[in-house]
Amino acid sequence: TTGNKIFHFGACRVSMSMAEIRAGFTAIKANIQARDPIRTLSILSYPHSLHKVKSSDRCCITHHLLNFYVGKVFKHCKTEDLYVNRKISSIANSFLSMKRKLGQCHEQNRCRCGQESTEKLKQILANYEGLNVTSAAMKSLGELDILLDWME
């Protein structure tokens, strides 16, 4: 099926079409990652992998990472390749849809941010701001499968 799943992030239940996002990303992954020359650095996984995050912090991290991608990353990923831009639009609009669903739960205070998630988010932003904006955005987009794997 579209792989539309019900995700449990703490107390939040959100249905998301992961397969459509993955299909969009897989179609452009090689192109995007080829634009990221600095392979030794990571935005999402430095210094610690997302998988180290406690499950109670999953909702907060997911909520803020969706905001991060929608608010910061996608807008700096425009390329000269129309096909790539269409797929980025597809992913961005799916993230926007997810962000809204999870945002509703966040507003109902069922998506708390603990100390650990706050630290992790700070680190991700520091990693991001340590690069020039286009490189940081392309690297973050190229790491989307890390995020999707972790979310699933």
């Binding site: 929608v70 608010g71 807008k75 831009n85 269409r86 639009s89 961005a92 609009n93 926007l96």
Partner: peptide, 13 residues
């Protein structure tokens, strides 16, 4: 898409 309208400077693709 809504993303282009809200975050993407109302760009068209």
């Amino acid at each position: 898409g809504e993303y282009e309208r809200v975050y993407g400077g109302e760009s068209w693709i």
